[in-house]
Design a protein around this nucleic acid. Structure first.
Lengths: 227, 227
DNA sequence: ACAAAAGTGTTTCGGCTACACCCATGC
DNA sequence: GCATGGGTGTAGCCGAAACACTTTTGT
């Protein structure tokens, strides 16, 4: 890194990650107990400093890898939070990211090691600083994304039934969705392919498993659910 | 400002503003010629450093005031740009904001003083660093906003005709919009109120002037134009 | 008379919603 | 047999789009 020619004062820059997961038909959030002052022991989002030679995205990836052991996670910028007093420990500008991960794939030991755990999205504890607000923003962004694009590849297991997909959407939007209409809408997008095996545990009749089509060149930008 | 307890290296943090205006039925962008190295003399967005005791929003407001003499400008975060090499002068993390201002209200002398000028949106010069990308992101955000909410209060003069409003939308979306349908859609939102005087310069018949309703408690969140 | 924009009305089409209804199967 | 979810079909509603048509007035 060459020496900067700028002489202006610098700031502490961080990232905070809102990590969404999905398990037991519930939308979940990975939170950790802060390991240093201020607010030591309180629940918070996973965060980290941004190094001089990396993007904020890279910093968020690093944080996610540290806590979940996963790489290539879906990540999206949410918002910059920069109130001078937002962190009592000093002036920190933080970019919030939301991530979607498959709970079945992450490293449970790492999570435990970091004093983190999964919380049901609608049963979160109170968080430190402005982290509650970050979660709210992230949830809005997630809904916006899910309303225009079929998400789930990053949250669901490799194969899933339409019921599971719909339950995920119901968890994200926190409301009921008509089964028949949802199914028709999803199929009209042509982004899923049916597998040969069926799930027989959730229903008597048995429901086909589906997976996301591999070569989905054209991104579907049609509304899936109304906000 | 209390002393920060954090010991991690700090970064240069800046904001860059994509300033939209509207004049002569054209969407415009306020750009300035950079006054210092690197890239001195090249066209760029208006930017500024973020001070230790202010939010990024506040910094953007400051930049806007310096260049336009206006306060209380509509501002929205676009994205954080943080590639380590994005600025050849050193590592700078920048939050892009877009702003909408009324060209008829800003201080033209200030703009000139800063070596800035208005460019037609579809005739911009090439910009420094990643500023072209910032403009692209901002335009997408602007379209998204305009598609869900009737904008114009921040771009149009105090009173305007439906034709002017439609022309603004056509400038933003860079396509034609059916006059009859647009008019009906806009009125259905009930956010405009008709004034008693008419514009007789743009049409022979004369078109009523409208203004945005003052007490528009309920924000209208209905689609105005398809993306 | 003509052009040009203002303003209104009408028809068509497609998608969303709300259902009804049959299927398959485990209990 | 009955409950449960799988899966399909359909009628109604509403909004978007396309476009015809009338009004007004300056030139």
């Amino acid at each position: 890194m060459p020496v900067s020619q700028y002489k202006y004062p610098k700031q502490h820059v961080a990232v905070d990650c809102i990590i969404f997961g999905y398990e037991d038909d519930k939308l979940k959030l990975l939170l950790s107990q802060r390991k240093f002052e201020p607010a030591k022991g309180k629940w918070s989002l996973m965060g980290g400093w941004v190094a001089e030679n990396e993007t904020v995205e890279k910093a968020a990836e690093r944080v996610l890898f540290q806590i979940t052991g996963l790489k290539d996670i879906y990540l999206e910028q949410v918002h910059v939070f920069s109130k001078p007093q937002r962190d009592p420990g000093g002036r920190v500008i933080s970019t919030a990211f939301y991530a979607m991960i498959r709970i079945d794939k992450h490293d449970k030991d790492l999570v435990e090691e970091h004093g983190a755990r999964w919380w049901k999205f609608d049963r979160q504890p109170n968080l430190i600083f402005d982290h509650n607000q970050m979660v709210k923003y992230a949830h809005e962004k997630l809904k916006l994304k899910a309303s225009y694009e079929l998400i789930g590849a990053n949250l669901l297991p490799g194969k899933f039934t339409i019921l599971q997909l719909r339950t995920l959407y119901q968890a994200i939007f926190q409301r009921q969705i008509d089964p028949g209409n949802f199914r028709k809408k999803i199929f009209s997008l042509k982004v899923l392919e049916r597998l040969n095996d069926k799930n027989t545990s959730d229903s008597k009749k048995g429901a086909y498993y589906y997976q996301f089509r591999k070569y989905t060149e054209e991104l579907v930008n049609e509304r899936i659910v109304k906000l």
